[in-house]
Design a protein around this nucleic acid. Structure first.
Lengths: 353, 353
DNA sequence: CTGTTAGCGCGTTCAA
DNA sequence: TTGAACGCGCTAACAG
């Protein structure tokens, strides 16, 4: 195989033209005679020319700018962790003239999301890392980006029917399946299951929860036909309403001692249990928010499923760079490991590095 | 903040010396007067110099060769995973003219290990990644390397009193501690613990097991005084002898339903349980060997502790390069996460990328 | 000991 | 339309 690294000079020599001409046809910026073009094309067809990325980066004085569109966050919550991973990648890539900037939006707020999408099109950037929210807005953005030839990648949630460079996140369905498996680990006859759900059906994150639920139900269908499963709908904010809901539920369904919360607010249920002194046999939730971890340690929560937010951010930025800066192929789907955290191993868990 | 990208020329100008001198202190390759060194150091302290990686890559004519000394392996065993990580790093570093070669030895075979150590000194190489085995031989090798000025790093197991660039592996003591915590999770009064141990006291890996044992016992001391703990010594090879040992043990100690295997051969115990139809309440082992994973899935093994072999290989090679090629500081100790795998999440576990 | 210099491969002038 | 020349930032060799 021709594993030699050809340079532009090599090609120029082989084609009997100058390096400048080769460069012109490579970047088809015109002003090349038909005959020259022909000669260079011929050589290029025969060899496998791979431009030296170091030389490109150095000569072009090219600065790469990546914009990350993610929700606003507070210290130690989910998106805070994502941003941490992004920052780490940014630092690592700074020597390659890569700079990373953020555009934040209010999670599940359509106006805010639309505004973020509009803003990114205004700025000049070479690649976009997007934590998508509303489908329609997202599609508008991605097609605009495609028109501009700007590569983009999704993290956390995948929007199908786009041409994203890659998606990095968890296999939600599978994580639901595992949730069921773990929850049902110590199942004993007569026990029932509680699914704690959202009441904001319009939220885009709802789809992710839906997928988790699907996986969860699949496991039950396969292994526990006839099991009693209760839906308990909680509000994102209204603690009083939730307390009443839970009071009623636990009074009415004393057998429901196995519980799952498909959003990241298992602490809502756990705090209630903590306050009332009630106990469930097995309560499982998602994401290592501080409040969740506290309840894992105090024992109201038995399992937390982690989805490596920092690694998602890190890998997202890196993926865009391997494509854009290093010109190397990128895996289109990158599923994060499904970490299972318990009281016992939470202290020794650290996501990355 | 000084987010400007300083160049060597900038530094030279600021320090009032030439670029060559700056380069000399950056790579501390000597021949610099105390005063010049002082001046340059001063500037470097004040700014945050980040060398342009494109320029480094482009200018690099030097070819670096790294030799990795690790045990022979078979597909999908522990060292196979390590090699996978090494290969990935090798691929990533190829553009910087780094090549990686292997020298293999027979694990726990002193002659073979000695031969590998001798061989590496014969070859010309610029850095060594070593999975150490016998202490004396290792010390001979490392002092020889130090005399030659060749940097080396350890993976998997740390040999103290050397000047290794870094050690990358698990905190064995801590992993033993966690093992105990997990094992004792569902402890009920009257239950006893079985520690399955090696009979090859001369083995170098024995020290690692010793540390795991220490951590394990520490947890028991802190939380379960007076607990009955039995040592069961198994042979690495002799299945018949092991069967007799285990028969006798389980007959004599029916209460010993919690078990740990500190080496990576928990499958020995698990296979026995599988064959005889006996059960333990909770059996925990180390490393995701295929045979171990099988027994995790069939249920004889309840937990496996992973130590990210691939990441160790990857980080080891990378560390040597950040020191040797990129002349940047390296963290001396790099502890891998302590992964806890169960039947439920083993299928969705993948170590790294 | 120190400054100068010649590339590395490519993009970008600028004359011709 | 084309070729030649310069410089990106850094390394390494060389001359003082």
């Amino acid at each position: 195989m021709g594993n030699k690294n050809y340079t532009i000079k090599d090609i120029a020599r082989m084609a009997g033209v100058s390096a400048g001409t080769v460069d012109r046809v490579l970047h088809n910026r015109g002003d090349v005679s038909a005959s020259s073009l022909e000669k260079v094309r011929k050589v290029l067809d025969e060899i496998n020319y791979q431009p030296n990325m170091f030389a490109i980066g150095l000569a072009a004085k090219k600065r790469y700018s990546i914009v990350c569109i993610i929700p606003y966050y507070m210290a130690y919550d989910y998106w805070y962790a994502v941003a941490g991973g992004i920052d780490r990648a940014a630092q690592e890539l700074a020597p390659y003239n890569v700079t990373v900037n953020y555009i934040h939006y209010l999670h599940a707020d359509e106006d805010s999301y639309r505004q973020a999408c509009t803003q990114v099109l205004g700025e000049e950037c070479d690649a976009v890392l997007l934590a998508p929210n509303f489908r329609e807005e997202t599609l508008k953005l991605t097609s605009a980006l495609e028109r501009k030839g700007t590569p983009y990648a999704f993290i956390d949630f995948n929007v199908e029917q786009t041409n994203a460079l890659c998606y990095i996140g968890q296999d939600s369905r599978m994580s639901g399946y595992i949730a069921a498996k773990i929850l049902m680990r110590h199942f004993r006859e007569g026990q029932e299951v509680a699914l704690f759900l959202n009441n904001q059906k319009q939220s885009p994150a709802e789809i992710q929860m839906q997928r988790r639920l699907e996986g969860f139900m699949q496991y039950l269908t396969e292994n526990h036909v006839g099991l009693a499963v209760h839906d308990v709908v909680l509000d994102k904010q209204d603690a009083d309403a939730n307390r009443r809901t839970l009071d009623r539920f636990f009074d009415e369904c004393p057998q429901a001692v196995l519980g799952v919360v498909f959003n990241s607010r298992v602490y809502q249920v756990a705090d209630y249990l903590h306050a009332t002194g009630r106990r469930m046999e097995n309560l499982l939730g998602y994401d290592l928010l501080k409040r969740n971890v506290e309840r894992l340690k105090t024992g109201e929560v038995d399992y937390l499923i982690g989805q490596r937010p920092a690694m998602q951010g890190y890998c997202g930025v890196k993926a865009l760079c391997t494509h854009m800066v290093f010109k190397r192929p990128v895996t289109a789907m990158r599923y994060m490991p499904i970490d299972v955290l318990m009281k016992e191993n939470i202290d020794f868990y650290f996501e990355f590095e």
